[in-house]
Nucleic acid binder design. Structure first.
Lengths: 195, 195
DNA sequence: CTTTTTTCTGAACATCTGTTCAGTTATTGT
DNA sequence: ACAATAACTGAACAGATGTTCAGAAAAAAG
């Protein structure tokens, strides 16, 4: 046997990324072998190398793709003039975006140490861009006199860390709806930074 | 060669745990081999098995030890009658305790997926105990009328997630002192839950 | 129908994995 | 001085690791 029936590059490529994403999130990058990923796709390990130069690139592209999607999605959200309204929009956006892709989020936060130095630098830079956007909102709110924040950098990280926490416990079959979750978190975020 | 000069069980044991802790935190459980740990200690891989039945137990004992230390340390903190004061004490305690052992904290949160099912259950139970202590404070505050919280469980997780964020950015040589960090976070926590 | 290209297999590679264990040496107890 | 024990070595184990590559088969192009 060699090439099997119905095999296509444009199908196998995404399937490899999906399988890698799920497996990396579940067991961790180092604990997942190329053969496991291949098995999930229904292909031999060697075939993966038609789609990625190596395992490291597979991880890096998943992470970079996620961070770029995140930034692009946030850039597409219309921005109000009010800093308070911007922060509310961000809270909702961040919670929803992250709950929609728990695996990608998990990897982007947990597998940083398995990146090469260069790849790590790239991802960290993307993350900083995103954080700077949030800090911009907080700074604007301080200027407008609606936020009282001794250190906007810390507040940025604190808010993001708090919101990221949702992913550790939220289940769609659970007690609370997405809207309720959003409302509860917005209540805390708002109070935490307000004057 | 076999037993080397000046070798002692009561020295090697802790050194193995220290090396494993550092390496697991740095590269991840799955990415670290028993031979790497042994090399760090200055011993052959086989010698590790005088101190741990296997690699999994090494991880589990590090995590369980950390969680028990955490709970014991918090239990030792004197508790006020005021829920507000209790929460302030918790904020300071949690930040300081976690900043003192970044590696153990990192492992306890990141390597859960590398635990066997039974071991995972144990660790999760210890974590829930700790979280329940915090939720008790918030509930008490609601009773006393000083906290306004729609959902104490979510608020508990949100506060802890926010505080855990410190470990991702704090450096002792950095811009802020521990006292300042504690003050800034307490300001946000207090406002987030207060009436 | 024939050629070319794309997609994949299956085997091979050198190296690393966790773990076991017989044997060796330093230390402790008598 | 000798025996017993604790601590460790070094080799071995069966299997897994990422990656390469010649060749085979299916699909596309002519």
């Amino acid at each position: 046997m060699a090439r099997t029936q119905g095999s296509h590059s444009d199908i196998t490529g995404p399937r490899i990324r999906e399988a890698a994403l799920r497996l990396f999130a579940q067991h961790g990058y180092a604990a997942v072998s190329m053969r496991q990923i291949a098995k999930e796709v229904g292909v031999q390990a060697g075939a993966l190398y038609n789609y990625t130069p190596d395992k490291q690139s597979l991880l890096f592209n998943l992470m970079a793709g996620h961070m770029e999607e995140l930034q692009a999605a946030w850039d597409a959200v219309p921005q109000s003039d009010s800093a308070l309204e911007r922060l509310r929009a961000f809270t909702g956006f961040h919670i929803r975006f992250h709950l929609e892709r728990p695996d990608a989020v998990f990897i982007a936060y947990m597998e940083l140490r398995n990146l090469t130095e260069e790849n790590f630098t790239v991802i960290e830079s993307l993350r900083r861009d995103y954080e700077n956007g949030v800090e911009g909102i907080l700074k604007k709110g301080v200027e407008q006199g609606v936020f009282a924040i001794p250190d906007t950098k810390i507040a940025t990280l604190a808010v993001i860390a708090m919101l990221n926490g949702v992913n550790t416990w939220y289940r769609s079959e659970g007690r609370l709806s997405l809207d309720e979750v959003e409302r509860v978190y917005w209540g805390m975020v708002q109070k935490a930074v307000s004057t």
